[in-house]
Design a protein around this nucleic acid. Structure first.
Length: 501
RNA sequence: GUCCCCGUCGUCUAGGGGUCUAGGACACCGGGUUUUCAUCCCGGCAACAGGGGUUCGAAUCCCCUCGGGGAUGCCA
């Protein structure tokens, strides 16, 4: 990782700025974590910092390699790049906590030896009972009853077959100030962080609050930018750092992302995994732009900004302190903007899977026509997947009729119009297709909506779509003729349907 | 319960004592362009949680209340 320059504003004069994103591989990349990752990435670009990806997989039950892989894939899809991580290596690895157990063990021994930690033989059941009882009276805090066990007592417990956890001995009456880049100075007292907390489980696996600070120190992380849900636990981590004589990084706690009921964003609010956003046809540019703007605004009040523009303007201290509600509507709007920004050629590979879903083989369509169709349909696609609704009107032989279109086509006016359209094709040579609309207009005497509504329904099966002239031109004489004849068979001759609709 | 964070239009936000009859964006409503719908353009609706201070002056500073969120796990 050569070439990174020290950034005067944030570095300490000796080390370059180092950031990290540390997901737990217990499922898909969640939108809230994606935002944290994006902010970290943007800051790393802005300050020329190293971005470290660390996998926090000490919850053996819930962690999986598949999750890790999907998270890495989603991060890459978003355009996030990291300099060190389990996949690319680096000088401060390994980058999976499950592969660093020996390291943590040494620190645990040190803590035990110095009396900063002790074995606790309380069982989970005992703790639950204590917690439940405390809940009735009010505040709960671990009693510290194993703090001063004699050797004999420990022996007895071990003989019973109890496997101890290791608890950190929380110092009395110590003030911990978290100087947060976003929240400002937050003051805690060691008196009310819940008592001595477990740092190593009875099966020997260390716990998050304990090793996160060790890894941040060992990986020389200078700035920890993470979700606000970690703020309350930060004093525990700092106390550990003090006991171990480890440096404490600069913190920045990001306000959380909520659902529309002000509750933590979850599945019932809509889709929450980045993976699903991709499948629904959101563009990574849109997601990055939206998530970056959630809790931050550009000086010139512009909302659509490229990654480079955001990087140029974003600053840790200017990020919002308050939680933001995730607005799916605005994301869609932003996505539609990015869809329109792309050329038909760029869009083609992205929409091909959706075309396939509605039975359109892009390779079988003349390329020129395909690109023209995409160009025409672009403004109608908020999501890439919306192409499924619109592509058939230009690329299928006979598109299906919408309910609304059916209603229109059954009207008396449509009957007149379909007949006139039908006779147009039996009387007029193909070179005169350009006259189609005007001829029908003249023959029927219809105009405006009265003319275009049924005509659009007849030709495209929908009431919405690109300019009809363009549609007709793209479909060509034969294409239009087929559709008119088809509608004529159904609505005028009332012949039974054949073939696909 | 306890500790911590937060509180400007429905939503995201601008705002750091006077330039605020509070600005922008999404959504919504109206109008225009389009021989039609959408796109696009123009316009409108709409907020400083409440109460006390401090000050000549408070959305901005302080306190209280209320409301929301987070933590309080052998989860992260």
């Amino acid at each position: 990782m050569i070439g990174f320059q020290y950034v005067a504003r944030y570095g300490d004069g000796e080390h370059m700025m180092r950031l990290r994103f540390a997901p737990s591989p217990t499922g898909f990349l969640h939108i809230g974590n994606a935002r944290t990752a994006i902010i970290n990435y943007l800051l790393s670009k802005k300050y020329n910092a190293v971005l470290v990806l660390r996998i926090e997989d000490t919850d053996v039950e819930r962690s999986s390699r598949e999750s890790e892989e999907s998270i890495l894939r989603d991060l890459q899809w978003l355009g996030i790049q990291w300099h060190e991580g389990p996949d690319v290596g680096g000088n401060f690895g390994p980058y999976r906590q499950s592969e660093r157990l020996e390291i943590y063990k040494q620190f645990s021994e040190q803590l035990l030896k110095n009396g900063n930690a002790y074995y606790c033989f309380c069982t989970q059941e005992e703790l639950e009972t204590m917690r439940a009882r405390a809940f009735e009276t009010g505040t709960y805090e671990y009693s510290g009853r194993c703090r001063n066990l004699s050797t004999a007592e420990k022996e007895r417990f071990r003989a019973e077959g109890r496997k101890p956890t290791i608890r950190f001995r929380v110092p009395e009456n110590e003030t911990v100030i978290v100087d947060d880049a976003i929240k400002g100075k937050v003051v805690f007292s060691s008196e009310n962080i819940g008592g001595d907390f477990i740092i190593v489980r009875s099966d020997g696996m260390p716990v998050y609050n304990y090793i996160v600070i060790i890894d941040d120190a060992l990986m020389k992380i200078t700035h920890v930018v993470r979700g606000e849900d970690h703020l309350s636990n930060t004093p525990k981590q700092i106390l550990i750092a003090r006991a171990l004589n480890l440096p404490v990084p600069q913190y920045a706690h990001l306000a959380l992302v909520m659902g529309n009921d002000r509750k933590k964003l979850s599945k019932r609010h809509g889709i929450t995994s980045v993976d699903l956003y991709r499948k629904e046809g959101y563009l990574p540019e849109a997601l990055v732009n939206y998530l970056a703007m959630l809790g931050w605004a550009a000086e010139d009040e512009r909302e659509i900004l490229s990654m480079q523009e955001i990087v140029a303007q974003i600053e840790l201290e200017k990020l919002a302190k308050s939680a933001a509600i995730f607005d799916f509507q605005k994301l869609r709007w932003m996505n539609s903007h990015y869809v329109r920004l792309k050329s038909a050629i760029e869009l083609l590979p992205l929409i091909q899977p959706y075309l396939q879903e509605v039975g359109i083989d892009a390779n079988a369509v003349e390329r020129e026509k395909l690109l023209r169709a995409i160009e025409l349909l672009k403004p109608y696609c908020e999501l890439l997947s919306d192409i499924k609704n619109f592509a058939p009107m230009l690329l299928s032989e006979i598109p299906a009729y919408d309910e609304e279109a059916k209603q229109i086509l059954m009207s008396d006016e449509a009957t007149i119009l379909i007949k006139e359209a039908f006779s147009f094709f039996s009387e007029t040579p193909s070179s005169d297709i350009g006259q189609f609309v005007n001829v029908v207009k003249a023959k029927t005497g219809f105009k405006g909506k009265q003319l275009f509504h049924p005509l659009r329904a007849l030709l495209t099966g929908k009431l919405k779509g690109p300019e009809l002239d363009q549609v007709i031109s793209l479909l060509g004489y034969d294409g239009c003729k087929k559709r008119v004849e088809y509608a004529h068979r159904i609505y005028i001759e009332k012949l039974p349907l054949e073939g696909k609709l």
